[in-house]
Simulated scan of single mutants.
Amino acid sequence: MNWFSLLILVGIGAAVYPHAVQRIFSAKSERTLKRSFTRMAWMPFITAGVVFLVGIIGVSAFPDLSTAQSEQIVGKMASAIANHNPVFYWAMVLLFGGVIAAIVSTADSVLLTFSSIVSKDLYGGVINPEASEQKKILAGKLAGVAAVVVLVMIAWFPPGTLYQIFVLKFELLVQVAPAMIIGLYWNKLQARAVFAGMIVGTILASTLTFAGITFLGVFSGLWGLTVNLIICTVGSLIMSGSASESEEWEEKVAEIK
């Protein structure tokens, strides 16, 4: 149950990953987007396969490592290989340069999305609707800088193992799935119900995770997502959309078509 729930958690979370959504908007055409996703569908098997091989080799090369030490296995292997000769040394330099580039390519997409949410939805939409475009951009940049500072502190003093942080990321990320997936196909979905479900699901998943409570071996994020879906669905059925909301939705659909 634990393994199967992890597959569901990662599958849903990957579908609503920020840089995956940005790829949809940046595609030149539908054909280009389909071709991109067709090729990308095989990449996790290749990348995960390489990581699996590195882990198997690392178990034999550095046995009896603790949990914390095992998370340094790539660095240990790179250091051992780099010490053989200068060619291997520079090969490891290029390797870690590629690792850093891969991390930054994902992190900057998430950071840009977060800054956009702060500048347009929070600051420009709620706090100061009359703000100029320059002020909105400044607010987004300041929020981005603050987020980077917090993330650096978390990276410097990690609250858990890389695996635990990886799972926690997806447990929080899946809470936006109802808004982005159900919202594409159900025009009666209400914004207030979605927001309430997202907040409750995030709080529930975070509380269960940090308290170390697990039901039936299922990850806390999926329990939060279940409650999130119930609130979204029931709340949307109870709330009746106003005429203006219906008209606005129909206009947006017409523009997309």
Rank of each mutant, 00 (worst) to 15 (best):
M1G: 06
M1W: 04
S5N: 08
I8S: 02
I12M: 07
V16K: 01
A20W: 02
R31C: 02
R31T: 15
S36P: 04
S36I: 13
S36A: 13
T38G: 07
R39A: 11
A41T: 15
A41H: 10
P44R: 12
I46L: 13
L53V: 14
G55P: 00
I56Y: 05
I57G: 04
V59W: 10
V59Q: 15
S60K: 14
A61I: 06
L65K: 14
Q69R: 09
V74R: 13
M77W: 00
A78N: 08
N83G: 12
H84F: 10
P86C: 08
L95C: 15
I100Q: 00
A101N: 01
I103A: 06
T106W: 07
S109V: 04
V110S: 14
S115G: 14
V118N: 01
D121W: 06
G124F: 09
P129T: 05
A131W: 04
K135E: 15
I137M: 14
G140F: 04
V148R: 01
V149T: 05
V150E: 01
L151V: 01
I154H: 11
P158V: 15
I165P: 00
F166W: 11
F170N: 00
E171Y: 04
L172M: 08
V174P: 00
V176W: 04
I181L: 14
I182F: 09
G183L: 12
N187C: 04
L189F: 08
I199N: 03
S206V: 14
T207N: 08
G212R: 08
I213C: 07
F215T: 06
F215S: 04
F215L: 15
F215Y: 07
G217F: 03
F219C: 04
F219G: 02
V227N: 06
V227Y: 02
V227A: 08
N228G: 05
L229D: 02
I231L: 10
V234R: 02
G241E: 05
S242W: 01
A243H: 07
A243V: 11
E245R: 07
E247W: 00
E248M: 12
W249K: 11
E251A: 15
E251Q: 14
A254M: 03
A254R: 14
